[in-house]
Design a protein around this nucleic acid. Structure first.
Lengths: 332, 332
DNA sequence: TCCCTTTACTTGAACGCTAACTTTAGCGAA
DNA sequence: TTCGCTAAAGTTAGCGTTCAAGTAAAGGGA
C-alpha cells in the first residue's frame, strides 16, 4: 500500500480511500490506484483492517455432526448466503459433546467472529454459556435445536409437528402398535417424542412405555434400538425414528431379522437426507428443508451483524413436510 | 491487558510475556497475572496478535462438495488433528466450480490463512494458480485429486489401483462384460478409468468404448448413466462406478429396470462412504480411508507451517482396500 | 572492591490499516 | 479583494499486540 502511494506520488490515505471507493477520491486517481494495485498484485490485509474496524467478516458455524448430512446441507445453505456478502464461514464440529462445544464457542469469540450460528449439543456444564455470549456482544442464531431458557434468534422446524405428522401418517397407513426410537434429550428429540405421544393420544391409541426406546444418534444406534424393539411381544408394526440415519439403521435391523418393510413393519424417519431415496427400502421421512434453515439463519445473522444495536430476537419455524416413500406404504 | 498491567503495577510487556509463559517472568508474577486475567475475564485479541506475529492460526480447507460424505469425513479428520494444535479450520465449498475455487483461494490467502488443504476441482482459467500460491508463501497440501504439473504436497490413494482392484474383483466374481461409469476429468476420475482399463487388458478382456459412460458426479449422474448402459446390447453384467454416490444411483436404475443386483448385474463403487452398507443392495466398494487422508494432510501441513523454510513436497499414497458387500457377490 | 552474569522487568517501535480531523486549491459570489 | 464553499487530498493518532533491545538489582567469584 505504501508502495502504491509512493509510486503514484499520493498519500497512504488516498490509496486507502480509493481501495474502498470512498466518496472523496476523484475517478481519475481511483483508476490509477486500482491499476497499480493490480500490477503489484497487492491485496489489502484483512487482519490489519479488522484490527481497526473491529469487523472480521468471519462467521462461526457450530455443528454437532458434520457427517450427518442434514448438517452438511445446513452448512451449504449458510455458506451460500454468507459468502456473497463477504463473510467466510468457520466450521466447528462438536461431535455432540457439550464440552467441545463450549471450548469452540470460546475460541470463536476470542477470534472475534462477527457472528455465530449454532446447533447446540446442549447440556453444558455452564448453564449461562449463552448469556455470556450475549454479554460479549456477538450476535448469534440458534438452529435446529432450541436451548431452554435462552431467548435468542432461532430457525428450525416445529419438532412436535414433525413427530405428530410422522406418527399420524403411520396410523393412517393402518399401523396400530407404533413404536418410537427417540433421539438425544435435546429440543428436537424431546419435541418429536411429544408429537408422537400427541398423535397417539389424539387417535385414542395407548402409549406403551416399552415401545419407546433410545436410539441416540446415528445408524448404529437405530440398528441396536430396533433389535430391542423386535424382541417385544406383541411386536410393533410401525416405528417412527428420530431421524433418517437412525431409521436407516432400523431398517437394516428389521430386514436382517427377516421382516418385510413395510408389510410387517413400517418405518419412517425425519430429515429427508439426500440418500434416503437410495436406502434398502426407500425411506419415508419428514422433510425439514435443511438448506433453507441454513439460508434463513444466515439472513437473520447478516441483519444482526449489520445493525449497530442488538435486534429483537426472531423465531422462525419452517413447516415440516411429509415425504412418503416405500418404507411406510399402506399394507394390504 | 493494559488494565491488568495497571492493576498489578507492572508493564504491559510483563503481562504479555506472562500470558505466553515466556521464560523471563517469575512464577509469582505469572500467577498474579493469570489470576487477574480470569477475574476480568480477559481474552487476548487474536487479531492484534496475528498482526504482529504474522500467524493467524487459521487453515483453509477447500472442498468441492461438502454434501458428499467422503469430503465431510476428510474435513473431520483435518479438524481433529488441527484443533488440538490451536488452529481453526475455515471450510470453503466450491461446488466443483473452478471459478468459485479460484475466488475462494484468493479470499483465503488475502485473509492470511497459515495454510491450505485443497481438493481441487481443477480446470481453472488460470493455469498458474498454484504457482501463485507458492509465490505467496502459503504452504498447502493437495488431497484426493492431484493437479497436473504441480509439484506439491499430496495425500490420496493410488487411483489407478482403485480402478484396478475394483475391476479385478468383478472379473474374479465371474463378470465378463464390465462397464465403467466414469467421473469428472480430474486425476481421480482419470486414474480410476486407467485402472479399469489396465485390469481388463491384463485379463485379456476387450475394452468396449460404449461400455464407458460419463456419470459426472452424484447419484443422479449415476442413475442416468446406468439407464444409458442398460440400453446396450449385449448388456453389461457388471459396472465399476466412479464413486459410491454414483454407484447408489446406478443401483437404483438397475433395480427399477427390473434387474437383480448382483445376480444379473454386479455393481461396485469407490469411497466406502458411511451409508454404503445401508443402501438398497449393500454396496461393494473400495475404501479410501477418508478420515485418514484428512489426518495425514493435516499433519503434513502442520509441519510445513512450523517450518520457516519451505519443505520438500511430500507425496503420500494410502493403499486402497476392497470392501465386498452384496452388490458384487459371486453369481451362481 | 570491581566486574561480570543472571534474573526480572521496562522501553520504544512497529505490524498495516482506517477514523476523524485538517489542509489546500480552485472557483464563484458579495 | 475577500469570503465561503466544495472537491480532493493530507495529517495525526491509534487499534492491541509482540519484538528487540535496554536497564536495574541481586548474586558471585577473584
Amino acid at each position: 500500500m505504501k508502495d502504491i502511494a509512493q509510486d503514484l506520488g499520493v498519500s497512504l490515505m488516498t490509496v486507502s480511500k480509493a481501495l474502498r471507493s470512498h466518496s472523496d477520491i476523484s475517478e481519475e486517481t481511483r483508476r490509477r490506484v486500482l491499476k497499480r494495485m493490480r500490477e503489484l498484485n497487492y491485496q489489502p490485509d484483512w487482519i490489519a483492517r479488522s484490527m481497526v474496524t473491529g469487523r472480521t467478516f468471519l462467521v462461526g458455524l457450530v455443528l454437532p455432526d458434520l457427517m450427518h448430512s442434514f448438517f452438511a446441507e445446513v452448512a451449504m445453505g449458510v455458506a451460500r448466503k454468507l459468502q456473497p456478502l463477504g463473510y467466510q464461514v468457520v466450521i466447528a464440529n462438536t461431535e455432540e459433546d457439550p464440552d467441545i462445544e463450549q471450548r469452540n464457542l470460546q475460541v470463536l469469540t476470542a477470534r472475534k467472529v462477527d457472528g455465530l450460528i449454532i446447533a447446540s449439543a446442549q447440556r453444558h456444564r455452564d448453564p449461562d454459556l449463552f448469556k455470556a455470549l450475549e454479554r460479549g456482544g456477538t450476535p448469534y442464531v440458534l438452529i435446529d435445536r432450541m436451548v431452554a431458557g435462552v431467548d435468542a434468534n432461532y430457525v428450525g422446524v416445529k419438532d412436535e409437528d414433525v413427530g405428530a405428522i410422522a406418527t399420524e401418517h403411520l396410523i393412517a397407513q393402518g399401523a396400530r402398535r407404533i413404536a418410537h426410537i427417540r433421539g438425544p434429550a435435546v429440543s428436537t428429540g424431546r419435541g418429536r417424542m411429544r408429537g408422537y405421544r400427541r398423535a397417539l393420544e389424539r387417535r385414542g391409541l395407548k402409549i406403551r412405555p416399552e415401545y419407546i426406546v433410545s436410539g441416540e444418534w446415528g445408524d448404529l444406534g437405530g440398528y441396536q434400538a430396533m433389535i430391542q424393539l423386535l424382541k417385544l411381544n406383541p411386536r410393533p408394526d410401525a416405528v417412527f425414528c428420530y431421524n433418517d440415519p437412525v431409521a436407516a439403521g432400523a431398517i437394516k435391523a428389521a430386514l436382517e431379522a427377516g421382516l418385510k418393510v413395510p408389510e410387517e413393519i413400517a418405518i419412517i424417519g425425519a430429515g429427508n437426507v439426500h440418500y434416503s431415496d437410495l436406502l434398502r427400502v426407500p425411506l419415508s421421512t419428514v422433510d425439514q428443508s435443511s438448506t433453507l434453515i441454513g439460508e434463513r439463519a444466515a439472513e437473520i445473522l447478516a441483519e444482526c451483524m449489520d445493525a449497530k444495536k442488538p435486534l429483537k430476537p426472531k423465531r422462525i419455524l419452517i413447516p415440516p413436510r411429509l415425504v412418503i416413500r416405500d418404507s411406510s406404504r399402506r399394507r394390504e
